[in-house]
Every structure is written in C-alpha cells, then in structure tokens.
Amino acid sequence: MASIAHDTLTFSQSIDAPRSVVWAAIADSVQRTVWGVPAGEAQVYDESDFRVGGRDVYRCGPPETFEFSGVAEYLQIVPESLIVHTDVVAVEGQILAVALLTWQFETQNGATRVQLTDQVTSFVGTDMIDGHRNGHTKALEQLRAFVEG
C-alpha cells in the first residue's frame, strides 16, 4: 500500500504592484511558465482554459524529460480576488498527489498581498508534501520578482 501523507500549507507574498498586474501574471499560462517553476526546471501547457469549469493540462520538471504531468481544474474564479482549483500531479499515469489550492488577493498599502492555501494529499509519502512547500515558496518569490522586475 502507498504511503499516504497530507498537510495544509499556507503561504503569503507581498508584491509591490497593483492587483490587476499580479492577477494577469497568474491568469495567463504563458506568464506562469516564466515564474512558476524552480530554476533548472520548465513547464509547458498542453491545454490552458482559465475559467470556472476550465482546466489546464501541463507537463513539468527537467526540460529534457518533463517527467511530471498535471491537471488543474478551476472551481471558482473571482477576478483579482480569488482562485480555487484542484491540481493532480502524476508520473507515467501514477498519481503522486492531489491538492485543493485557494489563492486570495488583497490590496495592502498599495501592494498586492497574495495568500495561497494548499491542502495536499500525497500518495507517495512526505516528499511530495515537501515538494509542494518548496515549490510554492519559490514560485511566490519568483512571481514577486517577475512582476516587480
């Protein structure tokens, strides 16, 4: 039997830019491929449909293999305020983790505060939980640098 692990992870990032600019960087899959993965890795979208009921189908990992595949399904989108979506990550058809992600955006002192809550279940132990923690931390830092840069 697989080793099940789960956690609720929360992250926040203050970005010195209007919500409309931060929102555009998140809503647009082309921009997401720039800031959304750690250095040395890449992401490509085979499908991108950012709307309630839409879904993104993507591959990510080292650019020579793109070993991970994923599907994000959008459950709720309130422009410049809220995104709720699921995310399923697999390798060669084996599901590694399933997550429910909630992105919240608010203006604070002229900057945009992004809060991300990731409720993740891993079917392969705690490494996927650690991967979510490290990946989201880096992605939010890179989002800030991308938008402010």
Results as ranks from 00 to 15, higher is better:
residue 97 A to T: 12
residue 90 A to L: 04
residue 61 G to H: 04
residue 56 D to C: 00
residue 74 Y to K: 00
residue 53 G to T: 05
residue 115 Q to S: 15
residue 66 F to T: 02
residue 8 T to P: 01
residue 61 G to D: 02
residue 3 S to A: 12
residue 25 A to M: 12
residue 80 E to R: 05
residue 86 T to Y: 02
residue 32 R to E: 11
residue 149 G to C: 03
residue 148 E to W: 00
residue 115 Q to I: 13
residue 28 D to L: 10
residue 61 G to K: 01
residue 57 V to S: 06
residue 81 S to I: 00
residue 74 Y to G: 03
residue 34 V to D: 09
residue 122 S to D: 12
residue 122 S to I: 11
residue 124 V to C: 10
residue 114 V to W: 04
residue 18 P to A: 06
residue 59 R to F: 01
residue 64 E to T: 08
residue 41 E to Q: 15
residue 69 S to I: 08
residue 101 L to R: 05
residue 44 V to N: 12
residue 113 R to G: 06
residue 75 L to H: 03
residue 9 L to I: 01
residue 128 M to S: 15
residue 141 E to D: 14
residue 132 H to G: 00
residue 16 D to E: 13
residue 134 N to W: 11
residue 136 H to D: 09
residue 58 Y to T: 05
residue 71 V to Q: 00
residue 145 A to H: 11
residue 126 T to S: 14
residue 29 S to P: 15
residue 60 C to E: 05
residue 14 S to P: 08
residue 126 T to Y: 09
residue 103 W to I: 11
residue 137 T to L: 07
residue 5 A to F: 03
residue 77 I to T: 06
residue 40 G to T: 09
residue 68 F to Y: 07
residue 78 V to E: 15
residue 65 T to W: 07
residue 60 C to F: 07
residue 126 T to C: 09
residue 139 A to T: 04
residue 116 L to G: 02
residue 96 L to R: 11
residue 115 Q to A: 12
residue 51 R to E: 06
residue 94 Q to H: 14
residue 69 S to Q: 13
residue 44 V to A: 14
residue 61 G to M: 05
residue 140 L to G: 00
residue 89 V to E: 04
residue 48 S to N: 09
residue 5 A to Y: 02
residue 66 F to E: 01
residue 80 E to N: 10
residue 44 V to Y: 11
residue 48 S to K: 07
residue 70 G to V: 07
residue 146 F to G: 03
residue 33 T to V: 04
residue 60 C to R: 02
residue 120 V to Q: 02
residue 146 F to E: 05
residue 27 A to I: 06
residue 67 E to Y: 00
residue 39 A to T: 13
residue 36 G to C: 12
residue 8 T to C: 06
residue 20 S to V: 05
residue 91 V to E: 14
residue 40 G to C: 14
residue 145 A to E: 14
residue 16 D to K: 13
residue 104 Q to T: 14
residue 20 S to M: 06
